[in-house]
Amino acid sequence: MQTFFIGFFGLAAVVFAVGVFRTSSMMRSALALLFSQTALGALFLAMQAEFLGVLQIMMMATEMSIMAIFMVMFMMDPGGLGGMDMSHQKRLSLLAGLGGVVLVTGIAAYTQWEGLASATEAAAADEQIRQLGRELLGRSMLVFETAGITILTAMIAATAVAVKVPEQGGSHES
């Protein structure tokens, strides 16, 4: 049953991901990406990572809504009614994408994963959250805190880049 759901949600995620670049409507692209990421969240749930699955669905729903708003702001034709092509070097990109898939699939298929496995039974959801909390506030605390500082830095950087610089010059300069 788990194999079926992993395959089903994995396939859904890939199909919607392909759909992102197969439409000239940016709104449809954003929605396809939202569905792809939601399918990934469901895939995490199928892999018994309950906390990460719910987090993925919540985060991506918010992120893609913001993305859709920015698209309407920045695009002349967010609905894609004009059928404008927004791509270049398609053949090279396709070759690189296919090459990437073949390479990563080859590595995944030919690695002896059995020798690397140490435990294959996941704990119950409440125990997982308890253990993750202990991990975050114990051994991995420095990494966790670094992520927090990085978010703060990115917020300041994003505000500094996006804020409108007051125009200088005019009558004062001359």
Binding site: V14, F21, M26, M86, S87, H88, S93, A96, W113
Partner: peptide
């Protein structure tokens, strides 16, 4: 493990589609 292989194949496919998008799209978003 077939479940592991399925998940890794999904990851590989998403990586490939993403790489295609990064190289082919002209719009920043």
């Amino acid at each position: 493990n077939p479940e592991l292989l399925l998940a890794l194949l999904t990851g590989a496919a998403l990586f490939g589609v993403g790489l295609y998008g990064v190289l082919s799209q002209t719009n920043l978003v």
